[in-house]
Nucleic acid binder design. Structure first.
Lengths: 338, 338
DNA sequence: CCTTATTACGAAACCGGTTTCGTAAATAAA
DNA sequence: TTTATTTACGAAACCGGTTTCGTAATAAGG
């Protein structure tokens, strides 16, 4: 079947293309009767308007890009839901890109966004990203950008993040209060601002409470799944063992749990564990896992609302806003006082 | 800064637009020297080609749509990864749409796809969908479609699914073998083919082994999170209680676990539980949860490869393939023999 | 009845590329 | 040297809409 278009539709009704276009957009220039006839014929002939033709003329794609490191853990799943909920209300389309935590990927994806393909960009930067030039270039081209969760510090760009320093601080206090003498923080990147802030908060609490005999209580866990496992195993079975762990992501806490099970280390008696995570299974783990839970859906939702504020008022160049949403420490058995 | 385009670029170099276009696409019609000059100037002036202009002319969007019910549980996250891995290799863009398990949403989303916006559609249907007309309409417009995971039976459309009947059958046998006399299957929809096939397999095993005193061992759990919880609570504390449960999705198993914890029902002694799920935390739950794990990433990957086969050979109209990938029953403590 | 305003529509430019086709100049074959 | 090819490029149509502007017909005002 040949694809129906406006020209065909206009020919069918003996009117001009302009009239059809206006009728379909409900212009006041077209009489009610004509509109009705055109609408009917359009539906009868299964006409659908080609979105790219309009994009070309109006320089509006009705599309946003979401760039994220991975869609593996539940945080980004929830964030995507928050993003979609707004986009869909606005009639916008959502393109998803994954950087796989690689700077090079992120750079080329961001480059792609600078072409009229999208009207705005939501981005959570990769753990490798230390140079913001690709993002600044996008900004210079006047494309609205909003960071969510993982932002790049020091740029004049809107962001929606959690209270990372404070959460790190409070989680450390929580461990200390419940009896930990040697807590450590497991990070996934030494360059990721969000991790560093959590780690800084954590460190501050240790200093303030004069706790911890380990010189550097912030440990970077990187590499493959296997490498991380063996790194954690070495940590938990080494000479100077921690008695408390704050994991910065799901995966690290899971490694800790698996290794404790394997080596017979008892949680929370020998080791207390908490994690920055939105995982739903935390309450039914063995033992139930204390989480610092980020409002993932809200982060996505609010970031997207911010983005649309910028897209819609582009001409007035909205001031950038940096919104901080609080995470919640949910205490469960894994950090219970011994 | 004004947006750079081909016309500007051509003017800058005193060549025609056609020459610029051909040079950028590395046409043999353009000499090496000219190409070099054009490439250099393009990069110097930060030229990026407008994708929609090309789409319009070539009727190729280099974009696919992925329509899914939710992105909540880990299955779809993994599937998205599989999809992206192929799309990204092909230089394609991925639009994500969520139907939120609503037929009306799915219908309007599918309608959107029929406009040249995308070159192909990957879809996992909503649990409400019983009428395939919207999908058939898309097919009639000659847009390549592939079902993944949740397909609509009886259509002449490619699909990649798991061995649902067999998995249901084997999971029931597993429960029976380990001592269950009254197993039930918790479904989320009475219309979803995938659930029904699992349930059918389950039912077959019960009949074959002459097991189960409950008339209808397939229970539809629907409604809000709260409603499902109370439904399951009633089931587990009622007069005729099951001693084994196969949950068709993550959420149902989680409900079961929470209610067992709340009511003191012991897993696996009083109740054995298994779930169709890809959740990573299954081994560290309390107790470790037996799963029937679908190859989610592979389903996404292979479905996307099938889709591209159809996109690339559209003219020859590739025969539809229905690929069945096996799930794996991973035995853990939650179904251990008592 | 004449003038002005309004209504309803069409012609054509335009968005930013791609592609076909024509052609002058350079090169190769006869 | 003449003819046939090849090379390198430009003019213009085209993709499918949107929008500006012009205009004939009708309505309103004086």
């Amino acid at each position: 079947m040949k694809k129906m278009n406006m020209k065909e539709l206009a020919k069918e009704l003996n009117v001009s293309i302009a009239t059809v276009s206006k009728a379909l957009r409900d212009s006041h220039e077209i009489s009610g009767l004509t509109k009705k006839k055109i609408l009917e014929m359009a539906s009868k002939l299964n006409y659908t308007t080609n979105p790219y033709a309009g994009s070309l003329r109006n320089k509006k794609s009705k599309t946003i890009a979401v760039i994220l490191p991975e869609v593996a853990d539940s945080f980004f799943s929830l964030a995507i839901n928050g993003i979609q909920s707004v986009a869909e209300k606005k009639g916008y389309h959502v393109l998803i890109y994954l950087s796989h935590e690689k700077y090079s990927n992120e750079k080329s994806i961001v480059g792609e966004c600078n072409s009229g393909r999208v009207d705005g960009v939501l981005i959570s930067i990769s753990s490798e990203t230390t140079n913001p030039d690709h993002i600044l270039k996008l900004q210079k081209e006047n494309i609205p950008i909003v960071f969510f969760d993982r932002n790049f510090e020091g740029l004049n760009i809107s962001s929606v993040v959690t209270n990372d320093f404070e959460s790190g601080y409070l989680s450390a206090l929580h461990l200390i209060k419940n009896g930990c003498q040697n807590p450590v923080f497991l990070s996934i990147s030494s360059s990721l601002g969000i991790c560093n802030k959590r780690a800084e908060g954590f460190r501050s609490a240790l200093i303030e409470k004069k706790t911890g005999r380990i010189k550097n209580p912030v440990i970077i866990c990187s590499g493959t799944y296997q490498e991380i496992n063996s790194q954690i195993k070495k940590l938990l079975t080494g000479k100077i063992r921690p008695d408390g762990i704050i994991a910065s992501v799901d995966r690290l806490a899971m490694s800790v749990y698996l290794i404790c099970r394997e080596t017979g280390i008892s949680i929370p008696n020998e080791l207390k564990v908490a994690v920055f995570s939105t995982m739903e299974t935390a309450p039914i783990l063995n033992p139930p896992l204390t989480t610092i839970t980020q409002p993932a859906f809200e982060i996505g939702r609010i970031a997207t609302e911010l983005l649309f504020k910028k897209i819609e008022k582009k001409a007035f160049s909205v001031v950038d806003e940096n919104i901080i949403l609080p995470s919640f420490l949910i205490e469960r058995t894994s950090t219970a006082a011994s």
